[in-house]
Computed example of a mutant assay.
Amino acid sequence: MFKRSIKWILPFAILGVAGGGYMLVQETAPEIEEQKELDTTPRVKTQIMQAEAHQVQISSFGEVVPLERTALSTQVSGEVTSWHPNFVSGGVVKRGEVLFTIEKDDYQAAVLQAEAELAQAQATLIEERAKANVAERQAKKIKDTQVSDLYLRIPQVLSAEARVKSAQAGLRRAKRDLENTEVVAPYDALVVSRNIGVGQYITAGSQVADINNIEYAEVMVPIAGFDAPFLPRDIVGVKAEIIAKGRVETVRDGRLFVTWA
């Protein structure tokens, strides 16, 4: 009898326990917030725009490089007799200073010889002109048909004049060669390298040194394409102030130029 009662009571007990557990779970479960509907209506805010001046600052970097680099060479041949104390690697020389000197004796002798040839040519020209004047006076006493340019010594005078011009050109070349025995600095320069020494024989056209111009320099400052519209229209030739900051601050005046890549 008891066993039959247990068989009937046990299912109800299990249902009761399950129902109690379900109620316990429901009471301890977190509350689920109700989802609110999102408002997807677009909102637009308007504002009146007004133009005003604004200074744009463009930053860039560039390297200072010499405006001129010269491979110095000689125009005459000869032995080096002396050179400037600052004509060494890293030295600074001024415009017009004599960098080095080539032996002058042969070139001085060439000038004297050219002067002598010019004097002789001028004397010949004077003589031919005098003879031409005599011939012209004598020609007045004879018939015109017998008077020729050769009789009037016109070709001789022209030839003498040509020799004078040739002698003048020779003298000019000799003087120029003599001047070129002293090689001067074409500008204020930094000596990068020197390839000669006293007693060395050099030929015309030999490269003797590399120098850089320090009177002027250029700074290539690249500007990005998106910054280019902010540049002034009339920028070419505008004065600029270049400031080199270091142990000693240096300020130089410059001008702006534009090259488009």
Rank of each mutant, 00 (worst) to 15 (best):
R194D: 03
V184N: 10
V184A: 13
K140V: 14
I214W: 01
E136Y: 07
M220G: 09
G199I: 01
S166P: 01
V219H: 05
N195K: 15
V219Y: 06
R163S: 15
D188N: 08
A160S: 00
K175R: 11
G205R: 07
E215D: 06
K175P: 00
N195A: 12
A169D: 06
R176D: 15
V192P: 05
T181S: 00
V198L: 08
L171P: 05
T124C: 08
L171G: 07
N195L: 10
V192I: 13
R137D: 12
Q138W: 08
N213C: 03
Q207S: 09
K140I: 14
I142H: 06
K140C: 08
V192Q: 13
E182K: 11
L178C: 01
A162Q: 10
L125K: 13
P222Y: 02
I154F: 10
M220W: 11
E127W: 10
R172V: 11
K140S: 15
I196N: 03
V191Q: 00
E127L: 14
Q146D: 05
V157S: 00
R153W: 04
P222G: 03
T124L: 14
G199C: 03
Q168F: 06
A132Q: 04
Q138A: 11
A162V: 08
N212T: 04
V184F: 10
I214A: 02
R153P: 05
D210S: 12
V183K: 02
A139N: 02
K165C: 04
R129C: 00
V134M: 12
L158W: 07
L125M: 13
V184K: 15
L152P: 04
Y216R: 15
Q138R: 13
S166E: 13
Q207E: 11
R172T: 15
S206V: 11
T181R: 02
A185Y: 03
A169W: 07
R129P: 00
V198Q: 11
T181K: 00
D188P: 01
R129L: 03
S193M: 00
A162T: 10
Y216G: 08
R163F: 12
E128T: 09
A130K: 14
